[in-house]
């Protein structure tokens, strides 16, 4: 899963898609994931960091990860 190269993200959670003109805002954990994706961190490593950092089960992370990917795909932010 790779973020499109030209997507602009900021630490405050704003995302701008120059190809469509759409803007998005992410919650802190969403913004964190996006920054890591942008830096090329592998999804499995990102998930592991979340599990270490937050009070959450692996199943829930997995389920929410899939839903977040669906949101990113829906928003046209991912490389196909």
């Amino acid at each position: 899963m790779r973020l499109k190269k030209n997507i602009a993200t900021s630490e405050s959670g704003f995302i701008f898609h120059p190809g469509t003109g759409d803007s998005f805002s992410a919650n802190p954990i969403g913004a964190d994931i996006l920054l890591q994706l942008k830096e090329g961190v592998a999804p499995s490593d990102i998930k592991k960091t979340i599990l270490d950092k937050y009070d959450v089960t692996a199943n829930m992370v997995e389920k929410d990860w899939d839903d977040f990917s669906a949101q990113l795909r829906e928003a046209n932010l991912l490389e196909l």
Binding site: S12, G13, F14, F16, S23, S25
Partner: peptide
């Protein structure tokens, strides 16, 4: 960025 700021 102005639009993002007021929106966010």
């Amino acid at each position: 960025t102005e639009f993002q700021q007021i929106s966010g």
